[in-house]
Design a binder for these strands. Structure first.
Lengths: 329, 329
DNA sequence: ATGAAAGCGCTAACAG
DNA sequence: CTGTTAGCGCTTTCAT
């Protein structure tokens, strides 16, 4: 027979060295025989380490989210952590509730893809001393580590491509200004046009309120209704781009013959749309994996300074872009 | 001042009635003031109720999975439970690891979309006395409650539609035989053809090994190579249908002119494919919600008999189906 | 190298 | 109605 503390030491890899090799073997054998499973809850209570983290997402149905979650989850599974998932459904209230629940379950850290300005839930997490890493979206202050795409490069790849095709009248359907992706891509849009010495007409920039097809549709209609000529649209993401395609079809404008469209994200099946969408590929898996790595780093050394990992996007040319037709405006 | 047990009783809705209303108020006020958050881990240790459940999925990147998870998660969030998510990546080993981890975290139940024949992880969960509910896929024994689509209706809706259009030579790209969706849909395919008094040619049924585009492609090529004439394909799901579309294009056969294709699931964006895919809509949200309800039921009354909730699918006609061309075979 | 004892934060039984 | 006591299963001093 052997006492519980010895057994505990034998079972735990970190303390195994403290105990006689032979005893270790005996304990392990008996444990296996009994189908003993250490109780993570009891351990967590004692050690304050639940071996779990929280992952908060705005909407699982947004196609960019599952690969991010997968990336996070794969890395943490490897590290022996389980993932508590919260789908905030774009509700601040539910977001807060999830953070509360995760805190109650003593998650050791939180990765969130929900960050937006004045994020109360984030404030709560920080106040409670919970390590937080941002993924996909960031916020402007430096309180967090984050894994984000290079928003500027996303837009400049799109514009460079269009300019290379000969476009000079390029419109932008911008993302929600409360998100860094929305705000930064919009800034980059204007900056990149300037770089190409193209005029940036404010009427050719319409801002969406959400990243949805409907909003893309509404914004594009507004663009068309403005009467300002344009031969290409850069949409802040693929969902908006889809809405653009619909609006063009409504107005009997052909894509890419009359208007080229570039999306962003390269979500699944964009290659199968009609026309197949030219877009900017972002590896959302890599985003998730990088966020996981950042949080693991932070758990390891809580004092380390915040870091931002920037994932580099790439242009994917398909059939929604073509040179502008001559003689049209 | 008031003692911890009184505070505990005041804080807990179930026992609140045991304590003076005025005291309750004082406790609540102080708790709020202190930002007190009950420690779910400690409570779990004492009560053996972790207020969490496990959700095991084969692959988050499969478009039918996120809505299922969302459905489950929404219902359980409402009930005050958190969700531990495990992405098994089609690996039995990882599946087992997740079940172990979830057991260690004392989840109160498990919902899994990974069920397949000889599922070791499921066996482990059952042996450990963990309530398990199956979603999307089922297994043939009666050990589990399950929320599944009406597989037979899925296929008969597809075939009825094709027969209505005039097709008589209908092929089937079947799903993996180890899954109930694969096996049952295949049986239903043969049964429904018989119902219509159509010959079921074994060479016009090809079985895939996984629900992927590639497998759909491979199976369709095999169908074409067989030399047997057919004017329509019923694919066991949309991913396989996508592969069919590709294989037809490879062989310079047009869809729907030469061959009609029907998928199953109505995953996101199927309406935007070229051609837009005729398919069978299954509400995966409802599947998830039903599974959640079944597990909650079970947690409430552990002795209740197993139930299977069957979600009714519906036909969505788009442009990948048309009457067969006359004079062709 | 192992045993003994205490305690993580909470709740449940038992008094009072 | 409220306080006291004990203990969930584990880890961690502290002794031995």
């Amino acid at each position: 027979m052997v006492h519980t503390s010895t057994a505990s030491r034998a079972l735990n890899g970190e303390t195994r060295s403290m105990v006689n090799a032979e005893t270790v073997e005996r304990v392990l054998a008996v444990a296996a025989h009994l189908g003993y499973r250490p109780n993570a809850v009891a351990r967590g209570l004692k050690t304050n380490r639940s071996q779990s983290i929280g992952v908060l997402v705005p909407d699982l149905l947004n196609p960019v989210i599952p690969p991010i979650v997968r990336g996070i989850e794969a890395r943490f599974a490897e590290a022996g952590f389980t993932v508590l998932l919260g789908n905030a459904s774009h509700s601040d209230e539910r977001e807060r509730l999830y953070v509360e629940a995760m805190l109650a379950h003593l998650v050791e850290g939180l990765i969130t893809a929900t960050a937006h300005e004045n994020d109360a839930a984030l404030g709560l997490a920080v106040k409670s001393g919970l390590p937080v890493v941002l993924v996909n979206r960031s916020v402007e202050d430096g309180r967090f580590s984050a894994a984000i795409p290079d928003d500027h490069l996303c837009i400049s790849l799109a514009i460079d491509h269009l300019v290379g095709l000969g476009h000079t009248q390029i419109a932008h359907v911008a993302g929600p200004p409360g998100t860094t992706t929305g705000a930064r891509r919009r800034e980059s849009f204007e900056a990149t046009l300037r770089k190409h010495r193209l005029e940036s007409d404010p009427r050719l920039i319409v801002t969406s309120n959400r990243y949805t097809e409907d909003e893309g549709h509404r914004c594009s209609r507004q663009l068309i209704a403005s009467g300002r000529p344009f031969t290409a649209i850069v949409a802040a993401n693929d969902m908006l781009a889809l809405g653009c395609l619909d609006a063009l079809a409504d107005s009997a404008m052909r894509c890419p013959d009359d208007v080229s469209v570039v999306g962003c994200n390269d979500m699944p099946f964009t290659d199968r749309f009609s026309p197949p969408l030219t877009t900017i590929n972002i590896s959302h898996d890599a985003l998730g994996a990088a966020a996981a790595e950042l949080l693991l780093e932070r758990l390891d050394s809580p004092q380390a300074p915040n870091r931002t990992v920037v994932i580099e996007p790439s242009l994917v040319v398909r059939e929604s872009t073509a040179p502008p037709l001559r003689g049209r405006s």
